[in-house]
Amino acid sequence: MSKRDYYEVLGLSKDAGERDIKKAYKRMAMKYHPDRTKGDKALEDKFKEVSEAYEVLNDSQKRAAYDQFGHDGVDPNRAGAGGFGGGADFGDIFGDVFGDIFGGGRRGGSRGPQRGADLRYNMELSLEEAVRGVSKEIQIPTLVHCEQCKGTGAKSGSKPKTCPTCHGHGQVQMRQGFFAVQQACPTCHGKGEIISDPCPKCHGEGRYERSKTLSVKIPAGVDTGDRIRLSGEGEAGEKGAPAGDLYVQVNVKEHPIFTRDENNLYCEVPISFTQAALGGEIEVPTIDGRVKLKVPAETQTGRMLRIRGKGVKSVRSSVVGDLICKVVIETPVSLNEEQRNLLRQLEESLGGQSSKSSKKHKPRSEGFLDGVKKFFDDLTK
């Protein structure tokens, strides 16, 4: 029986890219894999066909030969006539594509000493520390190289031995029909070596746990969510392999006065209604101290007043944000009778509650009342 076109098998056009080929194979291999088809011979043959097509189209040389000569170009029996031969190891193909799911993939020899793990440290900062920058000492528990055995794990004067089960590869292969599964060697647990006489200090691990103190320089302008990377300050690697990195994760605590939005700072500034009406200068706080702020006459509550350059300097540029003050007009409390009378006199001088002249002095209130009246008039129509 003649073979189907490999592009047709995977449902691809002839100009498909590597990513498209891998995605198509992954989708179809999951559909026809023997673990899902439960012994159905026709579907098992379909899986073999899909895997064979992928084995050719995913290899640039084989694909070029197939595009030029068709199936003859990749026929193992015609290797001398331009074919590539060798056949397909479907277990390796499946592992190469699905290694991220099943932990498989192609492996050549021992995995070798592994780089140390990265560590994370959560650091809380006050807003002042984040804005100005600060140096802090931190203490972290981590794995360090054993000085006594120099990271080998073997007692001084002895050496690790090659694992007799995996012969130093760290992995063994189990076959189920044509499907191959690789797993860590049960004898050496993936290390490829056996230590018969372990180091007494690290108990054969080549590393041991110890707390170390580090000085961390926090640059000015950091904010919650920023990370600072300290290269090589993570866990020590296996058998002398490089150490991982330490990532310091920044979290800025809430401030009682200021809130931050990127490079700008915001705060609420209470003023009396006399100051709001007449205007004047008031003192407001900044991160660097107090400054004078000019309040325009007839200022309404909620108005935003900007002080340029009193925000936060960006950690990534020279841009400095602003301090934005929200005016909140404070109503006086605990008034005595004389003060109440003075306020009544002021109210009368402004035209009272319903006088037409009050529109001149209270445009927002009058505008609101006009809007309410129109709303109810529209309801009654």
Rank of each mutant, 00 (worst) to 15 (best):
Q353T: 14
G280Y: 03
K191L: 02
A130G: 08
L127P: 05
A276N: 06
E366I: 14
K38V: 13
E44Y: 08
S354A: 11
E193A: 05
E128L: 14
E235C: 07
Q353L: 15
P296D: 03
E124R: 14
V56E: 02
E281H: 14
P34F: 04
V172P: 04
R316S: 11
G232Y: 04
G99H: 11
G70S: 03
G80T: 09
G87H: 06
L127D: 03
E124C: 09
K212I: 15
L230H: 06
M123F: 03
L143P: 00
L125I: 12
D96T: 15
G289F: 12
A130R: 09
G352C: 10
K38E: 07
E8V: 14
R308W: 04
N264K: 06
Y6M: 11
Q139E: 13
P200Y: 10
V74G: 03
K159W: 00
I195F: 03
K359T: 11
M304R: 07
K46I: 09
E128F: 11
G244R: 01
I218H: 00
S272I: 13
T142H: 02
L343I: 15
M28A: 02
R227D: 11
K217A: 15
I271N: 02
E281W: 13
S51E: 06
G103M: 04
R175K: 05
V248S: 07
N58W: 04
R115S: 01
D15Y: 01
N341V: 12
Y32L: 02
A241Y: 01
H189K: 15
C146R: 06
P242V: 12
I324N: 00
D59F: 08
D67G: 08
V131M: 03
S51K: 10
G105M: 00
G302W: 00
H255V: 13
N251P: 00
Q183M: 10
